[in-house]
Nucleic acid binder design. Sequence first.
DNA 1: GTCTATAATATGATAGAC
DNA 2: GTCTATCATATTATAGAC
Lengths: 191, 191
Amino acid sequence: MNVRGGATRAQIVDAADRLFYQQGYEHTSFATIAEAVQISRGNFYHHFKSKDLILDAVIEARLAGTRRMLEEWEAERAEPGDRIRWFIEILLTNRADIQNYGCPVGTLTSELAKLDHAALGEANSLFTLFRTWLRDQFTLLGHTEEADALAMHVLAVSQGVATLANAFKDEKFIQREVRRMNDWLDTYTTP
Amino acid sequence: MNVRGGATRAQIVDAADRLFYQQGYEHTSFATIAEAVQISRGNFYHHFKSKDLILDAVIEARLAGTRRMLEEWEAERAEPGDRIRWFIEILLTNRADIQNYGCPVGTLTSELAKLDHAALGEANSLFTLFRTWLRDQFTLLGHTEEADALAMHVLAVSQGVATLANAFKDEKFIQREVRRMNDWLDTYTTP
DNA sequence: GTCTATAATATGATAGAC
DNA sequence: GTCTATCATATTATAGAC
């Protein structure tokens, strides 16, 4: 602990998480992160020996946060259909960030794929978390056979909407696509 | 012209285009491009005074190439429905590149958005080219009112499929989503 | 744990010879 | 048009004092 009121390491991960999302991983330098946390670059290396290691920590934090979030969604909503609709609704809930920076998962995996970065596998498992969770909901709805294909479809459309929302910054477009996905989902939720 | 058999400038643009797609814009250095074209870094600056200027040239080349391609598609296919289906089919035609590097348009715009780069607007107009072209096809099909919304929907799903194909490298997934889009399109092409 | 100082390297960019 | 040599800067990373 320190004067900033939290463990420095956790603050670094928090700041790096946000900056990697907003500016990209490679574009974000140690100097920028250090400045955000108000520590010197030298001190930075006491907590993380390399830039790769902080990326690992950021992905780990995102994985943990996502797991927690998905568990909450399950606890708060009994109906699998409602849970899937809530997932789709994120596009509107987070529309400001999405229009500015795209989807945090999709843009990170795309960047790491181009960098051929060692952490790509871990980043992709962020997608897998959502995929598995969505698949489970479709299974609960009785669509066991095609559950994974349906999960991938929901993920794909959400990704595409995020990418185009980032390019065109059109909120009406997001609303339209969310409505379209909900209509499509009706086919699978109404008995 | 030179010993390499083509204008050096054009070769630089070609190499940069490919490298920006495969490795990302920021990650690609002058040294890498110069090596690909087999010229010295010094000579490089005779043709392009800055990295921003070569990005401009690459986007301009992509815009010109895309315009040419869309005109060809129109010339080769009389039916608007067939043209849209051919657009969707790119996901399979270019599946190898898409699985390795994602969509050339979507990944570039995402990167430039995070870099807050001046060329973002020009890159986004690559999306607009496809959007306008798809909108025109839906208009020809008689769906004038919703033509733009339908165009955006086709773009969005294609983007999402490309992003997830890049993450999961699953060809069956691409095939399934292309089939799904074609089924969806039937509603708008059959009178 | 935190700092300053510094090293090693890569990068975008320029100057000037041929 | 092409090259070598060089500059200025930013970046990752280390050493060592407090």
